[in-house]
Design a protein around this nucleic acid. Structure first.
Lengths: 150, 150
DNA sequence: TTTGAGTGGTTTCATGATGAAACCAATTGA
DNA sequence: TCAATTGGTTTCATCATGAAACCACTCAAA
């Protein structure tokens, strides 16, 4: 009777959720993408209990999503920064952002919007495209096991 | 001391995770996208305890992500199917799939791959683009509060 | 160089969420 | 009509979470 794990599973979605599927991890990554680096910054931003934050930071480091660095301001403290693997979660957060913005707010309720810095315009919604560029929807796709099952 | 909620928060990511951020919900949605509809199908596929599955299905229905329909095979049972809001989670799952496939498998470990049905080729990785079509990365974007803060 | 505030945690403990199993009612097939 | 299947609910032990207390280290100022 332990918390279920998806370690051996062939579905990449399940594997991802096995690592990132808890309540706080993705929010920590979001804040890290916004530039937060210090324990206290995360704690203040998220309002999470300090013991839980400590656990999660260790978890994210154990999975190679965050790493510690000496503080950028020359002090003796350390900072938590995203690895390449962590930064690659960007599309996941963008997709969650889009869905939340569209389906989890009342009309007129204030929310944050992602802008392209260069132009100052909202970014385009994410699109799934085929190898040849055709726009794809759920029903245009299927899954196969790789390498092919015998 | 209750489980924290992000209801009043302006960040759409937090709102999304407030609804979908628990361990099972996204996996249920994934299975629903694969065509599963019946309680027993979800239970068998996920290996989740029946009481938990029952809770999660109710949760997803309460949030308008799933709805119940009379069974498509003419029997008296009911089926759980995705709403429009639920189907819109497709990009989220695609993004999680991509990240998991790239970062959570050993070389050569079998995994599932998403194909474009029409051509039978793997789909293109998700890309974030600006309004004018430029490819964007994390550092090319910023967030603003909408409507604008005074 | 002491001192007091701030930072970054760990420990403790009460409570809530999870998971396994037993139980049960309705439906279906034989 | 009877047994098996389906779709749950209930119960209870255990795990995870959250709040608060506690502690060590760092830093800035006196």
């Amino acid at each position: 009777m332990k918390r279920t794990s998806m370690e051996g599973v062939a579905c990449p979605v399940a594997r991802s959720l096995d690592v990132m599927g808890d309540w706080w991890s993705l929010l920590i990554v979001r804040d890290a993408m916004l530039g937060l680096r210090r324990f206290g910054e995360f704690q203040k931003s998220l309002g999470v209990a300090k013991n839980i934050l400590s656990q999660r930071l260790k978890h994210l480091m154990a999975h190679g999503i965050l790493e510690v660095q000496p503080a950028s301001d020359g002090s003796a403290w350390q900072e938590y920064v995203l690895t390449q693997k962590g930064r690659r979660l960007f599309p996941v957060l963008v997709a969650l952002r889009e869905w939340g913005a569209e389906h989890c707010f009342e009309q007129g309720e204030p929310r944050t919007v992602m802008l392209d810095t260069a132009q100052g315009l909202p970014v385009k919604p994410l699109e799934l495209r085929a190898a040849d560029g055709r726009l794809l929807d759920l029903q245009d796709t299927r899954l196969v096991r790789e390498p092919a099952e015998r």
